[in-house]
Design a protein around this nucleic acid. Structure first.
Length: 504
RNA sequence: GGGCGCGUAGCUCAAUGGUAGAGCAGUGGCCUUUUAAGCCAUUGGUUCAGGGUUCGAGUCCCUGCGCGCUCACCA
């Protein structure tokens, strides 16, 4: 392995430690407090008026070293936070100070035992009696220095290059606390969703990621192969068809939180693998699901932010229920002047779009044209939370038609900040209609169309056993986390976003 | 995949086509309550890779690689 000059110096220090009988990587640590616990314990100790010294053994990564001749101040950091160590020649001796100076570096892990006290400036610190190396770092962290201004930590010249940050996320996380915070919010978001659904008596389940037939969404799959079974398999593009099989099985309310894989382009809101939450609820319809959606997002905001007002890309977004309900047809009339009900086939709609100068892909089915209009003109305008509802049947093969309008299905998508957040419908439960839809997908879309939904005979059989009316829902968790953390790109809310492979 | 931009020390960034620099980090020294500690000294470069133009290239041109933005794609 290539080593830099800085690394070689540290490797020499490891050699020196070994020659002096100091283990640079001891097996165990014996902490009594996490850093924040030590601080809290000392505050309580002060309050109690107890004059006895309070001792603690703490540990963490060295984040700042200030050696000042016969004293030294370190800041160490563990998962709970930072605490200051105060070393004095009086306690650790000149040899101890020499070891600190010669063998310890920023980034090393140290264990220190001593009594808690406040320094002249009032900072709770450990007056170190003894210390030892817990783990010697060979590669220096890319950190610079932190300055505290009015209680806010200001980092100077810290790791900033996005490529390095994503490729070496460990280093990014180690030196950029606000990045760690994003992933704490992410974890809490998923916890909150889980609690919300558990409290409604939903059952959390896990369904196959490797699937012989993919479906439930319009997307191109990743393909893989099982060697022993000699079987082509697809990584799932949605959970939908398996979750609805479970409703047939008698679980009234099920949900899954997990990874979907779509073999498509990457963008600020698309990653090849992303986290989805889907739930299915028997005896509900898409109106019920709209209400659950706005309540769930509000609940998540309450739990994480303590407010239902989000700041995102300069917008102030209010997620309080009820969200605006906008009929797709009306929404398109508003922004494009085209009434899709006046254009019952693709030829007519193409003509109308051409007359208005709207771009489109010639020969697209009617539903795809409508989808183009939504994406280009309607979606960007939906900043405040909005349910866009009643979609064309031909781009919604798993949703139930409206009784009085067979060309339209009971489906909605939720938009926030001009971004699609979720998708839901009153689920199609008529096996004969479903079979017809699958067949239509085979004729309306050309065979090379990546969005063609494959026939799933087993799913039809499940539905044939009898499927209750139900509402279903899917939401991109990454996008919700983007909203909650005001991040402009999905890569910032993924620990290890997909990057191109580097040539070695 | 197309267009535009970027790639310089460990990190953050400079450098009219004319000697590759600064701050921090590192190294050596001074310093017994500091907190971006301070002061003095000092090391560190295949300027992403490869080719070309030129007396001379970090800088201009071409190719490749990677990243960013954007368009296309993406219910």
């Amino acid at each position: 392995m290539e080593r830099t000059e800085l690394e070689k110096i540290r490797l020499e220090k490891i050699e020196q430690m070994r020659s002096e009988g100091i283990d640079p990587y001891p097996l165990r640590s014996h902490v009594t407090h996490r850093n924040q616990e030590a601080i809290t314990a000392f505050e309580a100790h002060e309050q109690s008026g107890n004059e006895e010294p309070l001792t603690a053994t703490v540990a963490g990564r060295i984040r700042a070293m200030r050696l000042m001749g016969k004293v030294a101040f370190f800041h160490i950091e563990d998962g709970s936070g930072r605490i200051q160590l105060f070393f004095r020649v009086n306690e650790i001796g000149p040899e101890g100070l020499q070891v600190l100076k010669d063998l310890f570096d920023n980034g090393d892990y140290i264990e220190a035992q001593g009594t808690l006290f406040r320094t002249k400036t009032g900072e709770i610190s450990v007056h170190v009696q003894s210390f030892r190396m817990l783990s010697k770092a060979v590669t220096p962290l890319p950190a610079a220095k932190d300055e505290v201004v009015d209680g806010q930590v200001v980092r100077h010249a810290t790791l900033n290059d996005p490529e390095t940050r994503y490729r070496q996320r460990y280093a990014d996380l180690a030196v950029n606390p606000e990045v760690r915070e994003i992933f704490r919010v992410r974890a809490k978001t998923i916890q909150a969703i889980r609690k919300f659904l558990d409290d409604m008596d939903f059952l959390e389940v896990e369904t196959p990621i490797l699937q012989p037939i993919y479906g439930g969404a319009a997307a191109r799959p990743f393909v893989t192969f099982h060697n022993q079974l000699k079987q082509e398999l697809f990584l799932r593009i949605s959970f939908e068809l398996y979750l609805k099989r479970l409703i047939v099985g008698g679980f009234d309310r099920v949900y899954e939180i997990g990874r979907d894989f779509r073999n498509e382009g990457v963008s600020y809101k698309h990653n090849p693998e992303f986290t989805q939450i889907e739930f299915y609820m028997a005896y509900a319809d898409y109106h019920t699901v709209m209400e659950i959606t706005e309540k769930m997002v509000s609940f998540v905001c309450d739990q994480i932010l303590g407010t239902r007002i989000l700041n995102f890309r300069g917008h102030t977004i209010d997620v309080n229920p009820p969200w605006r309900r906008l009929e797709l047809r009306q929404g398109l009339i508003d922004v494009t002047g085209i009434d899709i009900n006046e254009h019952s086939d693709s030829t007519s709609l193409e003509a109308a779009m051409k007359a208005k100068g709207y771009p489109f892909k010639p020969g697209s089915p009617r539903g795809k044209l409508i989808d183009t209009l939504i994406g280009d003109y309607l979606e960007p305008s939906l900043v405040q939370p909005t349910f866009l509802y009643d979609y064309p049947r031909d781009i919604s093969p798993l949703a139930k038609s409206k009784p009085d309008d067979p060309g339209t299905v009971e489906r909605f998508e939720g938009f926030i900040a001009g971004m699609e957040l979720c998708n839901a419908f009153s689920e199609l439960n008529d096996p004969l209609d479903q079979e017809q839809r699958f067949l239509e997908m085979g004729t309306d879309f050309t065979s090379d169309d990546e969005e063609q939904h494959p026939m799933d005979e087993d799913y039809l059989r499940a539905m044939s056993y009898g499927m209750p009316p139900m509402g279903g829902f899917g939401m991109g968790v990454d996008r919700l986390v983007m909203l909650l953390t005001n991040q402009q790109t999905i890569r910032e809310v993924l620990l290890f976003p997909h990057l191109r492979k580097l040539e070695e």
